[in-house]
Design a protein around this nucleic acid. Structure first.
Lengths: 246, 246
DNA sequence: GATTTATTGCGTCTGAGGGACACAGTAAGT
DNA sequence: ACTTACTGTGTCCCTCAGACGCAATAAATC
């Protein structure tokens, strides 16, 4: 029942593709001493190079080509370390998050949960491209699981089922990520997309009276308010449930 | 102040690319009687064909090639109707949602808001690929705005600012979409990704005690519970705020 | 009705990106 | 020393999005 050796595996090359390949890579241990020439690079080096490119030029700039170029090698050389693009993305995501924050159990669960969400936000804001990766279907890696572990710690003493706790965290993460997308797009050239919409919206304002009003009303508050608002609503909602159960 | 005629527009071809192009397409009116030969197709026909393909084979199967094939023409012919892939995606999204539900103002705002979220979920579940499109940065089209308008109607009488109302809806939409992704993935071949994770998780269970426990606890409840849980938490959170302000 | 001209249909080309494959070079075991 | 597994990488191939240009067409004008 080894995780290696798929049926049609082409040979003893990279850790094999397919579902197991990703898992094996994400949870990889130290290499068990191989025979041939020493590898010039390592999985971590590849991931690091890809991360740099993503940080500098965005996720779209991360191609096998560009990663190889940064390492001073050719595209095909990378396939010795990473089975393919999908797996590279998975690795990229799990390293992008960085180490999970310390578990701040006990004390006030509201503060702990709010703090946790804030940590997620802070990290995600540093690497907006990680949000894109996180919102695609993916296998959680060790780091991502550690984040969830930390989040669960804040909820330990609440009268919620395990599923409900996970749902709470997912709710917060979803909100935080949506927010990061808003904020990080503000600086990009796509912000004028909304600007192009404004005249049309004004023209059809009679069809969307409430929407127009809401947007007009929304001017003063910064985007930070949206983040806090959402987190506080979720926390309040959970608090209401906890109170009702006691 | 026309929305046409960009500086470097290549000529009087399709509605021009760029930010204004997509807006013009989304809010397009009836064609104002042109000169040359009658177009064989229409924007709607192209979008309809693309929608069919997405419904049958998923969003990835939607390429200019495949859409053209379904219409019985060649790829390049499509560019007469749609400036490019991005614009096609925008149109696809705005038609995928379908008509917004009737505005159920008055009455119980909790029921109305819950119902609205449920409607979003039902529609999204029919077209999971629309969720992917919706979670990319995009300009909202007329239909999407109508949905928000309907959602805002449910919140009319609450003591919230416009921004807060919008944030509330965004929070719900985010949750609903995350849920749709979960549910629609269950049937796809990727569900064994999580299965591949299970053994590894078991092996490292001492590193993630709470996560393992939460997952073990999560078995009984179906995925529908997750949907309701999140919606109810948000509603409760908003209710708490509203109560505090009165 | 003849002519002008905007507009459509679409074939051809390019360029980017992911990936399969084969082969040569290399170093660890035997 | 020799075998053998493993690395590095050049060469192809496929899929997609899109630019460009040209011939056919039909509405508008004379």
């Amino acid at each position: 029942m080894s995780a290696q050796a798929r049926g049609t595996a082409p040979g003893p090359d990279a850790p094999s593709s397919g579902p197991d390949g990703v898992v094996a890579l994400l949870w990889r241990g130290p290499a068990p001493a191989r025979r041939g020439p020493k590898p010039r690079f390592s999985v971590d080096a590849v991931v690091a190079a890809a991360t740099e490119i993503a940080d500098e030029h965005g996720l779209d700039a991360v191609t096998m080509q560009s990663v190889a170029a940064r390492l001073g090698t050719t595209k095909m050389a990378l396939y010795r370390y990473v089975p393919g693009r999908v797996e590279l993305d998975a690795l990229l995501l799990d390293t992008a998050l960085g180490a999970a924050p310390p578990v701040t159990a006990g004390a006030d669960w509201r503060a702990a949960l709010t703090g946790w969400a804030g940590s997620v936000h802070a990290r995600a804001l540093e690497r907006p491209w990680a949000v894109e990766l996180a919102q695609r279907p993916h296998v959680p890696g060790p780091v991502e699981l550690a984040w969830y572990e930390a989040g669960l710690a804040a909820l330990t003493d609440l009268p919620l089922s395990g599923a409900e706790k996970l749902d709470t965290l997912a709710l917060l993460v979803g909100h935080v990520m949506a927010n990061v997308r808003q904020q990080s797009r503000g600086a990009s050239p796509e912000s004028d997309l909304a600007a192009g919409l404004a005249p049309v919206l004004a023209e059809h304002s009679h069809d969307y009276p409430r929407t127009v009003a809401a947007f007009a009303d929304a001017e003063p508050g910064g985007r930070d308010d949206a983040l806090r608002f959402g987190i506080e609503r979720v926390v309040a909602g959970v608090a209401a449930l906890a109170a009702a159960r006691r």
